[in-house]
């Protein structure tokens, strides 16, 4: 594999909060177009890893290289530039609750794209159509169901056409049918926009649908890695516990 095709390169990443060491030695490479699923118990640092990638949290040590840039070394302006190429879907969707569905998507487009007003309107309609929310364009986030909120979070993120998508527990709190719908949406987005993704999830149905590769976080480091079919047959009791 040519090194230039690796879009996320994490080496020996460490992060502590107070005296609690969360990430002890994280090593992960994600190739262009690949979807990597991260499994692990709650509170083991899966979301912290995502936040290190996007520069919301700074690591104590180690390398976090995204699209050829060392994230902890960047100035705020350089970080903002690289963030335009990264989409982050929050577990809670993190919708702007004082703005309508349309305004939620227009907000990043207004500030980070070269589109004029008509172009922005077309793009908003396109991404809402992608996630099946065209009819809700003028609703407020408080009027949307849990699944619709997640889909709006996805629409807002893909509006900027990112090269990398980071999904923080995209199906948590959803019923199985909606969870499957969101998982299929992740695959559709991957196919349409050719993005590289890291998906943090506990949902094995979601993992099975979306994953090219699964990594398992244990004791602050990635203990196992493989495809869904490889890991389901793993001898490691900890890994198997996710599939039972």
């Amino acid at each position: 594999m040519d090194n230039s095709e690796i879009v996320i390169d994490i080496e020996h990443l460490k992060k502590s909060f107070g005296k609690t060491e969360i990430l002890k030695d994280i090593n992960l490479q994600v190739e262009r177009g690949e979807t990597v699923v991260t499994l692990g118990k709650s509170g083991t640092g899966k979301s912290v890893t995502l936040k290190c990638i996007v520069g919301l949290i700074y690591p104590d040590s180690g390398k976090v290289n995204v699209l050829g840039k060392d994230i902890p070394e960047l100035t705020y302006e350089e970080l903002q530039y690289i963030r335009k190429k990264i989409g982050f879907v929050f577990q809670s969707a993190a919708l702007y609750d004082s703005m309508s569905v349309r305004e939620n998507i227009e907000f990043p487009l207004d500030r980070n794209s070269d589109l004029d007003k008509n172009g922005i309107t077309k793009r908003v309609e396109e991404v809402l159509s992608d996630v099946g929310l065209s009819d809700s364009i003028d609703k407020m986030p408080s009027e949307l169901s849990g699944g619709m909120r997640k889909r709006l979070g996805v629409a807002r993120t893909i509006a900027l056409k990112p090269e990398i998508m980071l999904w923080d527990e995209p199906t948590t709190g959803l019923d199985p049918a909606t969870a499957r719908e969101i998982s299929n949406l992740i695959v559709d987005m991957q196919k349409k926009y050719k993005v590289s993704s890291i998906v943090v999830t506990h949902d094995m149905i979601c993992a099975k649908i979306v994953a090219d590769r699964i990594v398992v976080l244990k004791d602050g480091t990635y203990a196992n890695s493989g495809t869904y079919d490889e890991l389901v047959k793993s001898d490691d009791e900890f890994v198997r516990s996710f599939f039972e």
Binding site: L56, F88, S92, D97, N112
Partner: peptide, 14 residues
């Protein structure tokens, strides 16, 4: 608390 500020930050909106 609802991560809206983080969401603005990661979408490169200051």
């Amino acid at each position: 608390v609802t991560e809206q500020i983080d969401a603005m930050e990661v979408s490169a909106c200051n």
